[in-house]
Amino acid sequence: MKDTMIDAFRDAVLTIFDRDEASALLTQAFFDNPAHVFLYPDAVTRRTRLMWLMKANLGVQFALGRSFAVRDRSERVAAMGFWHPPGSPEASPALLARHGLLALPFRHGLETFRCTLKVINMIEARRKACLNGQPSWYLNNMVVRFDYQGRGLGSSILRRELSYVVDTSPFPASLVTQRPQNVTFYEKLGFQVTNAEPIAINGRSFPNWIMVRQKPR
């Protein structure tokens, strides 16, 4: 069946030169995401801090992952995401330093840095446990521009990605989300919740779901 939603946009592969636009889009999309509110509870400074964090992290994403995106008629990024292929290496200290992430404790405070590391390590340990050591396509930073949300663009682009990238390989796909509405969205695309434990640190917590989509038989 012809996907008219996708046909209204132009496919794009993002590069490091798109980092400013992509980081702005991610900041808008994740401003009220529970994990980021947990890390940056002050709403006044959160946007500026998130913008820096997203821009630095995107440098690592471009180095380790594979981007997918579509642009609208104005050449804005309308939707985007990254796949970390099965067997992707962990980000090395040299790579983190190259893109500025090791400056996090100096820019946002040592406690925020420590908390961020704990959150990342807890989530990643659970995701790997859910996969029982099996490599997977890890879906990261999947977002749709606010203008196009609720119109089926996200499901159209991800359905195509799953068909072309994941289902042609022997590996499953995995992802992490902190929003219940996203759980429903991804379940419609074949993902199943494999862990729904909240992330709790120092008496504070936020919801977290790990989801896995096995390759169709």
Rank of each mutant, 00 (worst) to 15 (best):
M122T: 14
V144H: 00
F30K: 04
L26D: 09
H84T: 15
L95H: 04
S23K: 09
R73W: 15
L104M: 13
F113M: 04
L58D: 10
V144N: 01
N195M: 03
T194G: 12
G190S: 08
R76G: 02
F68T: 05
R179F: 01
P180S: 14
R204Q: 08
I157P: 00
M122I: 12
D32Y: 07
A69S: 14
P180E: 05
A129L: 05
A129G: 06
G109A: 11
W137A: 13
S74E: 15
L162H: 08
R127G: 15
N121M: 09
F171L: 09
H99T: 11
M54I: 05
Q178D: 12
Y40V: 04
Q28G: 01
R66T: 13
A94R: 06
Q192M: 05
H36Q: 15
V176L: 08
A173T: 02
R127K: 14
Q134R: 08
E111A: 07
E197R: 04
V44S: 07
E197N: 08
V119T: 13
D167P: 07
E90I: 02
D147R: 04
L101A: 09
L39T: 10
R76Q: 14
Q134L: 11
E21N: 06
Y164K: 03
H36N: 14
R46H: 07
R46E: 12
V193Y: 09
F82I: 15
G65F: 00
R46F: 02
G152L: 13
I201Q: 13
G81A: 11
Q149T: 11
F30P: 07
L110D: 01
N182E: 08
I157V: 14
K215M: 03
D11Y: 08
S169V: 06
L39W: 13
R10C: 14
I120G: 15
R114Q: 14
P170G: 10
L39C: 06
N121P: 03
N182M: 11
I157L: 01
V165P: 03
R47L: 04
A35M: 12
A24T: 13
I123R: 11
L110P: 00
R151V: 02
D18K: 02
F38L: 00
M1C: 06
V77P: 01
A35T: 13
C130V: 14
D32V: 02
